[in-house]
Design a protein around this nucleic acid. Structure first.
Lengths: 337, 337
DNA sequence: GGGGTTTATGTATCCGATTACGCAAGACAC
DNA sequence: GTGTCTTGCGTAATCGGATACATAAACCCC
C-alpha cells in the first residue's frame, strides 16, 4: 500500500478541538454559520495538526471536482504553450485546477476522453480536434465543453473563435500596395477548420482584387513542414513574390528556408506572412507580418464561459467571436521588380 | 447545484445485472477474481448504462488519486513547454493524470503548494524553484517529490540533473580552437542553481586555458532579457569575441540583438553559445551551438523515479545525473582577427 | 461420495468530507 | 418570566467505489 500514513482528517481536528466533525467542516466552508468562538477553537486545532480539507472527498459529496480538463495538441506549435499557460493561470485565479491532456500530432483525443469523465472534470476546454460524436459523449456526462478556435457548423456548442476577416483584407491590401500580385498559399492540414477558414478569407480578399493564388502547398502547422512546402512551391515553377502561411510556425519555417537555405532575401525577394501572432514571431530574426489573435481576451472568454457553465449548467450555448488584428512586421516589403 | 443529473454508479449496474455492487467493482479491477459469466453480465449492463468507475470515489478509498502535480515556471522559456509535454505524455502512458501548476516569473510556488495536497496528488515533479522548507512540507504530507534540474546541497531529495561538465569543456575547447580568447558571460538569474552551475563549469573550463571572462551581464533566461544584457556587455567597452549564455533562449536573444539590431555578424564578429538544446535553437535563423540536455531520457527518468516512489514510498532518495552533449551549430565560428 | 482446497460472490464497513434535520441555547419583545 | 425567532451545533445519512471477511459453489483427488 502506498502512503500508509494516516492523514489528518476533520475527525482528528474535531477530537482535538472537542467539537463535532461537522463543525470542522463548516469552519472550512466560507459563508457557513459558525460562531467566532467555534471558529477559533477549530482553527487552532487545525493548525496544530496541519489539517487541510481533502478536496477529493469534498468533490465526491459536492459532485464538483473543481478540476477542468484542458486538451491541447501539436507540441511543436508554439501557439499551444502560450494558450495553455494562459488558460492555466486564469483557471488558477478562479480556484480551478487544470488536468492537462496532450494530443500528439494525428493522435486522437478519444484516448483521453474517458479519463475526463472518470476524473470528474467539471468542464473541458478543447483546443484539439473533437468530433461531434466525441463532443456529444462529453455532453452525455453533463460536462460543459468550450471549444477553442473551433466550432461545428450545424451542431451548437460553446466556442471561442477569432474572426480574421477584416485583418486578412488589410493584410492582402498591404501586400497589394507593396506591388505583390503573385501569391502562394502555404496551407495547414487539409482537415483543419482553422486552415480552411483562414485560406478562405485569403482567397476571398484576393478575389476582391481579381487575383487568386498562383500555387499552393501543404504543411502540418509545424516549423519543419514549411521547408518542404516552400520547395514544392518553388518547384511548381511559377514565380511567386509572397507566401501566405496558415500559421506563424510555418511562416517562420518558410522564412528560414527562403533566407537561410535558398539564400534569398525576405522580404527583398519574397514576402512572408503568417497567422496567430505568437511570441516567437516577434523575435528579431523573424518579425513576422501576421494576424494576431487576441489570445489574452480569447482565453479570458473561454475560461469565463466554461466557469459560467460549470456553475449554471443550463446556460445556453454561445459562440464568442473576437477579431484578429493585422500586425505589420518586416517579413513583408516591396515586391521585387 | 451543478450537474443535478444523477450519474451512473456501480449500484445501478449491479441492479441491472442482478449482482452485488462489489461484484461490479471487482469487474473493473484488473486482476480481480471474477468468473467469466459474471464479467459478461456486468459488462453488458455497464455498457448499456454507459458506466465508467468514478476515479474520485476510487481515490478516496484507495488513497491513490493517480494524479501527479507538475510544476513548471517561466512561461517565456521554450524549454518548459517541451519538458511539460514530454512529462505529460509519459505519465499518460502509465495511466497517471497530470495536474498542471504554472509559476510565473518571480512568483512563488507556495501559492500552489497547498492545492497539491488538498487534491491528493500522489507525487510532484517540480521544475520550479522549491525551497527546502516547501519541499519538507510536501514530504510532511507523504508526497514524493522529484526535482527537475535542481537539487539541494545538503538535503536529500530525488532529483534529475544534467551534468554538462564534459560538454562544457568541449564547448570551450571548440571556441578556443576557433581562436576565441575574449569571452563574455550572459548569466541567468543570480539565484538560479542551474545558472550558477553552468557558469561555474564555464569558468572552470576557461581556467584550464588560463582564461577568465572579460565581462559579464545578467538576464532572466528569457529572450527579451538578452538584448539589454548584450548592450551592457558592449558598453563595458572590452572587446569580446564570444558570448556564453546560460540558456538557449538568451542565446537566441543575444544572437538576434547582435545580428539584427547591432548589425554585426554571428559568428563572423561574435560567436554565441547557449545551454539546453531546445528545438527553437535549431531553427535555421539560429542553429545554436549549445549543450543539449538529453531531455527525453531525463523526463523518462523523472517519471520512472516518481512512479516508483508512488508505489513504494520507502524507496530511498536518488539523484540521477545524465550527461549533456555538446552540439555544434553555426552560431560559432572563427574569431575575428 | 466424502473431505479438503480453491474460487466466486455477497455483506458490511470504510475512505473523508458535506449537508438536511432537529434540538438547545441565546436574543428579543412584552 | 413567558413565548417566539434566530442562530449554532451535533447526529446521521450520503457521495461512489474498494475490500476484509464470511459463506457458498466448484473443483480435485482418492
Amino acid at each position: 500500500m502506498s502512503r500508509p500514513f494516516s492523514r489528518v482528517t476533520s475527525y482528528d481536528v474535531a477530537r482535538l478541538a472537542g467539537v463535532s466533525q461537522s463543525a470542522v467542516s463548516r469552519c472550512f466552508k466560507p459563508g457557513a454559520s459558525v460562531s467566532r468562538k467555534m471558529r477559533e477553537k477549530v482553527m487552532k486545532a487545525a493548525n496544530e495538526l496541519n489539517y487541510t480539507p481533502n478536496a477529493i472527498a469534498r468533490g465526491l459529496i459536492t459532485r464538483r471536482s473543481n478540476m477542468v480538463a484542458v486538451v491541447v495538441s501539436s507540441r511543436m506549435n508554439f501557439y499551444y504553450p502560450e494558450l495553455l499557460f494562459q488558460l492555466t493561470d486564469k483557471f488558477s485565479d478562479r480556484g480551478v485546477r487544470v488536468l492537462l491532456f496532450n494530443v500528439n500530432q494525428e493522435e486522437d483525443v478519444g484516448r483521453h476522453l474517458s479519463q475526463i469523465w472518470q476524473y470528474q472534470a467539471d468542464g473541458v476546454i478543447s483546443a484539439a480536434y473533437l468530433s461531434i460524436e466525441q463532443h456529444r459523449r462529453l455532453r452525455g456526462h453533463n460536462i460543459p465543453v468550450v471549444m477553442f478556435n473551433r466550432y461545428f457548423d450545424d451542431y451548437a456548442t460553446n466556442s471561442v473563435w477569432c474572426d480574421a476577416g477584416t485583418a486578412t483584407s488589410e493584410m492582402i491590401d498591404h501586400l497589394i500596395n507593396f506591388g505583390h500580385r503573385r501569391f502562394a498559399l502555404l496551407n495547414g492540414p487539409e482537415d483543419s477548420m482553422v486552415n480552411r477558414e483562414r485560406m478562405r478569407l485569403v482567397r476571398q480578399a484576393l478575389k476582391r482584387h481579381d487575383l487568386e493564388p498562383v500555387t499552393q502547398a501543404w504543411g502540418n502547422y509545424r516549423y519543419e513542414s514549411a521547408a518542404v512546402a516552400v520547395q514544392e512551391i518553388r518547384n511548381a515553377g511559377k514565380k511567386v513574390t509572397a507566401i501566405i502561411a496558415a500559421n506563424d510556425m510555418m511562416a517562420m519555417g518558410a522564412l528560414d528556408e527562403i533566407r537561410n537555405v535558398m539564400g534569398l532575401s525576405v522580404p527583398g525577394d519574397v514576402s512572408v506572412v503568417g497567422f496567430d501572432g505568437i511570441n516567437a514571431g516577434r523575435f528579431a530574426s523573424y518579425e513576422l507580418t501576421t494576424i494576431r489573435q487576441p489570445i489574452r481576451r480569447m482565453t479570458e472568454a473561454a475560461v469565463a464561459m466554461l466557469v459560467d457553465r460549470m456553475e449554471e449548467p443550463d446556460t445556453t450555448d454561445e459562440k464568442r467571436v473576437l477579431t484578429g488584428a493585422f500586425v505589420q512586421g518586416t517579413s513583408t516589403g516591396q515586391a521585387p521588380a
